[in-house]
Amino acid sequence: MAALTKSDLTEQINRDIGLNKREAKEVVEQFFEEIKASLAEGWQVKLPGLGNFVLRNKTLRPGRNPITGEFIPVNARRVVTFKASLKLKQQVSRLRLSKQEEE
């Protein structure tokens, strides 16, 4: 099953809300851009129904090359994780997909 993309979201806004294609495209771009900008400023993001984008600082830790076994430090860094809302979790967990549908 093909993935949902920005162009699908754009078409839907054009159809449901009646903004023209150019405006709809801009809104979709800015929606994701402002979430990124907020996270880059350190602000976590909460979107009702969907979930939360949570930031975490990771400390330096020893990692290793799984093939050679050689130690390589994994640098301290900041990462984002997504915590699905309870509603989304429940809906997704009920899915019964066959392997074919998953592709």
Partner: peptide
Amino acid sequence: IIDSLIKNLSKG
């Protein structure tokens, strides 16, 4: 946008 993200994920 938020509704479509939820709906599509919920459909798998």
